[in-house]
Amino acid sequence: MEIAPDTKISAVLKENPAAMEAIVSINRHFEKLRNPVLRKILASRVTIGEAARIGGCQVEDFYEKLAPLGFEVKGQATPSGKVAEAQDSTFPEYLQNLPSSAFHYLDVREDLANGNDPFLLIMKAVEQLTDKNTLVLVNTFEPTPLLQILHKRGYDSYTEVKGPDLVYSYFWRKGEVVTALPSQPATQDFEQLLAQYAGSLKKLDVREMEMPLPMVTILNELEWLPTGHALHVTHRRVPQFLLPRLEDRGFQVAIQEAKPEEVYLLIFKPASS
Rank of each mutant, 00 (worst) to 15 (best):
P239T: 04
L201F: 03
E221H: 13
N16K: 12
H232D: 01
E110S: 14
L213T: 13
E247H: 13
L222Y: 10
N114I: 04
F119N: 03
Q128Y: 14
T187I: 11
E257R: 15
P143F: 07
L137P: 04
T140F: 09
L219T: 10
L129S: 09
G49E: 04
P244N: 01
H232E: 05
E2F: 14
A195Q: 08
D205M: 03
W172Y: 08
R236Q: 15
M1E: 03
Y158M: 11
Q96F: 09
V126N: 03
S200T: 14
F268L: 00
Q256Y: 11
E85D: 12
Q58Y: 13
P214L: 08
P185F: 04
T78D: 04
Q58F: 10
D165Q: 09
E2Y: 15
L112I: 14
I41L: 09
D205Q: 04
D6Y: 11
L13G: 01
A195D: 05
T179A: 10
L98K: 03
P145Y: 03
P164K: 14
L204C: 04
V233P: 00
D6G: 06
L246M: 06
P226W: 07
H104Q: 11
P212K: 12
V263T: 08
S100M: 13
Q240I: 06
L66Y: 08
S10P: 00
E64N: 02
L201C: 00
A180V: 10
D189A: 11
F171N: 04
T159Q: 04
P145V: 14
K65F: 10
I3Q: 03
I48P: 00
D88L: 13
K32C: 11
M209S: 02
N114F: 06
R249W: 13
G250M: 01
S273A: 05
T130V: 11
I9M: 03
V83D: 11
Y168Q: 12
A254I: 04
N116Q: 15
E223T: 06
V206G: 00
I267T: 00
T130Q: 10
S157M: 07
P118S: 07
L243M: 12
E261K: 15
D88R: 15
Q76I: 15
P68M: 04
I26Y: 07
I23F: 09
L265Q: 02
Y158L: 09
T217N: 06
P185L: 07
E85R: 15
R249K: 11
K8Y: 14
K259Y: 06
V233H: 09
V136M: 08
V12E: 00
A77S: 05
V136D: 06
M215V: 15
L166A: 10
Q87L: 15
E2K: 12
V138L: 05
R45W: 14
L13W: 11
A77V: 07
A195C: 05
G81L: 05
K259V: 01
P239S: 06
K132R: 12
E127K: 11
F190S: 09
C57D: 06
N220S: 07
Q240W: 03
H29V: 08
L265V: 01
F268C: 02
R249G: 02
A113E: 06
E262R: 02
R109Y: 12
T78F: 08
M1L: 13
R207W: 14
L243H: 02
S272P: 00
A51N: 13
L194Y: 09
H104M: 08
S25E: 00
I122L: 02
E127Y: 07
K202E: 01
